[in-house]
Amino acid sequence: MSIVVKDLNYVYNPKSPFETRALHNVNLTIEDGEFVAIVGHTGSGKSTFVQHLNALIRVQSGSLVVNGINLHDKKCDLKKVRSLVGMVFQYPENQLFADTVAQDVEFGPKNMGMSQEEIDVCVKNAVELVGLDWETVKNKSPFELSGGEKRRVALAGVLAMQPKVLVLDEPTAGLDPVGKHEILTLVKKLNEEQGVTVIMVSHDMNEVYENARRIIVMKDGAVVYDTTPEDLFALEDEIVKMNLEVPYMAQFCNYLRKHHVKLPKGVRTVDEVLKAVNALKGGSNV
């Protein structure tokens, strides 16, 4: 069970003056339980690519198989695909519409045709999973909540469909540091504890560096890098050339490594780097 992409191409408005090539021979495989980040500039094709994964955009040429379902097949079961691959758009709180939190969160499960008992369980679990108190919020209007809470309700609306794959487009955009931390902790928990495959689109390289296990860099519709965070950001010059940021901790470690300081692999957060540097103390004259 996985996502297998072969020779995927996509052209917007084919055969018209507005024709634009959005995807160019994309080939990759994402296994169950991975935490993948997709980065690249606006117009790099990352948004077109991820919308293929739940058939919001249909395959034009090439093939895309998600958990054994061939999305090139016009008659594939869309509902099944969309419950399998949950998609959280940028500023998801803008899609809230129902009178109460409970009604909003059950929109997805209802569309999927679950039974009422199943729905009730899924909805409650999802709301609690995103860290909100079910009894307090269930009958509240989603519009009364704070910005961060709204975003979590919207996230719960997707999680209630119990997706195996979660696609997130800029999940922390517009949140303050604490709000960001809460969302990322939640996503990490889903990935580590429930084995949900996470595909996260993000502009924040620090965030990507600390959370993803694999980074796919897209440029002009093609995949230009597909590697681990450490290996990717070791290529500092190439990253800068692509107008992307190099995470602070990667800059720091790159500098030390370039000056022949031996650091262990996989140190990415401030505390990991601190520990690694402190470990150097023994062998030095400080």
Binding site: V178, M249, D271, V273, L274
Partner: peptide, 15 residues
């Protein structure tokens, strides 16, 4: 107050 110092400064301070 729900804020965080930039990562590099945090590292410098902790070092």
């Amino acid at each position: 107050a729900g804020l965080k110092v930039p990562r590099t400064i945090e590292l410098a301070q902790k070092l």
